[in-house]
């Protein structure tokens, strides 16, 4: 180990940590200083400790470190008062970071990874091509009507007569009912807009979004009946 090199690296970290502490909480300057500190930590990430292979399953060690490291960096940045917990009289910055990794973040990461159950990839083969589409049909069951069918039915029936009444301004054909059914059938905003002669796609989508917001409670109500 090159001691002089380490001293220089330590000095850099210390300078940045103290600069961040100097600025007030919530200030832009503190945030910028923390970003600089994070960059320096990333440059020096080789100096951070790795998970103890006696304590953690060795094949998980790299993943544990990766996740712990991410969380350490988030900790440094947010909330921006966290940096105040570093006391330069008590430890070097790198030491403080290593303690955090060792005592908190490695455990956290391990808990994340261990609770994880790997679903075998064969079960859901998502391919962005035609062939793949058929495989999705595993999800579709010919059972009691699913929500999407109920919703579609509810809008088609329009028992309250409200969905066909609401339409885009100056375009009585472009009713919420028709637009919704097209959307539920998977048509794109482009196609829907073209069909009704609407120039701007956002006109159609914004109209739709606002209707949804307004009608959502009613639709939910009608669908649960």
């Amino acid at each position: 180990m090159d001691c002089v090199q380490n001293d220089i690296l330590d000095e850099r970290l210390l300078e940045l940590a103290m600069k961040a502490q100097e600025h007030q909480r919530g200030s832009k300057q503190r945030r910028l200083a923390l970003k600089e500190l994070i960059n320096e930590i990333q440059r020096q990430s080789g100096r951070l400790i790795r998970p103890n292979s006696n304590k953690y399953p060795s094949k998980l060690c790299q993943e544990i470190f990766d996740i712990a490291y991410q969380r350490l960096l988030v900790f440094i940045y947010h909330p921006d008062k966290n940096i105040e917990r570093y006391n330069h009289d008590k430890a070097r910055v790198i030491g403080w970071l290593n303690i955090k990794l060792d005592r908190r973040f490695f455990e956290e990461a391990k808990n994340q990874l261990v609770s994880n159950k790997n679903i075998s990839v064969e079960d859901w083969a998502w391919e962005d091509n035609q062939q793949g589409e058929e495989l999705y049909s595993i999800l579709v069951k010919e059972e009691p009507p699913c929500s999407s069918m109920i919703v579609r039915q509810c809008i088609e029936e329009d028992s309250e007569g409200i969905f066909e009444k609401k339409h885009i301004k100056d375009n009585p054909e472009a009713t919420f009912q028709k637009i919704a059914i097209k959307r539920l059938d998977g048509e794109s905003w482009q196609d829907i807009s073209d069909f009704f002669g609407i120039k701007a796609l956002t006109t159609t989508s914004t109209f739709y979004h606002r209707c949804i917001t307004k009608f959502a409670p009613i639709i939910k109500q009608l669908c649960t009946d």
């Binding site: 020096q44 080789g46 991410q70 988030v74 994880n116």
Partner: peptide
């Protein structure tokens, strides 16, 4: 000689996806 990462990466956050 300590290893020093030259590439500065953007902050990321990974979450394990549990069975639930």
């Amino acid at each position: 000689m300590t290893q020093v990462n030259q590439v500065i990466e953007k902050l990321k956050f990974s979450v394990a996806i549990p069975s639930e």
